[in-house]
Design a protein around this nucleic acid. Sequence first.
DNA 1: TTTTCTTTAGGTAGAACTACCTAGAAAATT
DNA 2: AATTTTCTAGGTAGTTCTACCTAAAGAAAA
Lengths: 214, 214
Amino acid sequence: MRKNIKIFIADDHHIFRKGIRSILADDKTIEVIGEASNGDEAFEMLSRLKPDIALLDIDMPGLSGLDVARKLKQNNSQIKSIILTIHKDREYFDEAMELDIKAYVLKDSIANDLIDCIKKVNEGAYYISPAISGYLVEKRAGRKEPTQLDKLTSTEKQILKLIAQNKTSHQIADELFRSIRTIENHRNNICTKLGLKGPHALLIFAIENKDQIS
Amino acid sequence: MRKNIKIFIADDHHIFRKGIRSILADDKTIEVIGEASNGDEAFEMLSRLKPDIALLDIDMPGLSGLDVARKLKQNNSQIKSIILTIHKDREYFDEAMELDIKAYVLKDSIANDLIDCIKKVNEGAYYISPAISGYLVEKRAGRKEPTQLDKLTSTEKQILKLIAQNKTSHQIADELFRSIRTIENHRNNICTKLGLKGPHALLIFAIENKDQIS
DNA sequence: TTTTCTTTAGGTAGAACTACCTAGAAAATT
DNA sequence: AATTTTCTAGGTAGTTCTACCTAAAGAAAA
């Protein structure tokens, strides 16, 4: 027998969480393992409970659902994010797409196929509400995250390149005739600018984006 | 003025190393910074001397030239490997191609263009002896290393998977209900088995091969 | 049965990176 | 000219990983 799909619900309306739970209760393979009524609490609980999928509302006190998804992405979390929202606005959708979000579902169309959506997402697929999916077509062409690499100065990009070659700060310092403290300082600034956190987030970012570094 | 190209020669025949040196002596921009007569010594010296290019014979006592190239690759070394060999066999060539080797030169055709070959390789190009280059065309389709992942036990592979998700030893230990020392010990064993060395060699290997981990 | 391999876990040391600081000099902007 | 940004470099602390050890218990193989 297959393992249950573990779900976490984040929405500031109690009645809405109830509704979701009742929809999901029909399916024995889906298990709601927790819920939160604001973004900060949601992020904390997600980090701890590690569900398979997070159902996130955009409008919440504190961190928004998109903020939570962003933090999950920054932490290289394996949790798949589904956005549940009333917003049809293109802006929100575009932002969500930048965040590796697996599904974007309008609240007025969930009753029908939320379970289906969850199962597909759990298998690695994407799901976009029909009312929204038109945006997707135009998108994808101009793919290519307007990477935040432009935020970096040229020195920082140079160092990022060397990091991508798996060089240590010490090696980089030698190569550029700089103090290792200078290199470490640049690393820190890069991490701050890109919102990278944790032990090897910078190295991994550098490797994954090495082709984009100009 | 451009920096000299630093070369290292590994071959078990003294007379052959002499020959190479005399060919290379004609060019002032090429500098032979060391040589070795067996694979183990070669690898040790390469790690220490860090030349730009390593000329490796396949047939050597101990580690073969291909073994040396493999270990260099595993260490994410920046050293470019050129294989010099008498073997026209396809097997050897195929193996070499899996190892990011920059040039594969038959010994009976080196006198003419070894210098040229070295310079091209130094600029990032590839060079394959004409007698061999026919193999190349068919190749490239069935790409896919028969990775040495089989050397690992199932526990080790499990941990490697978690490492590929950029989890720290601490996180892995928590997840598997083991001591962090156990995890660290497994990491060490994996590194030893795969010949990985240096600060983040394991993390990078894990990420690059995450799809292959079964 | 003996030997080897695997898994577990601890000891010690050092290198590397992260996370925050401060601060001066140079360069670029306003 | 004044302000801001960038680059440089140091201080301190703590975490993570590497690199060596040893060692016991259990499983698998010889």
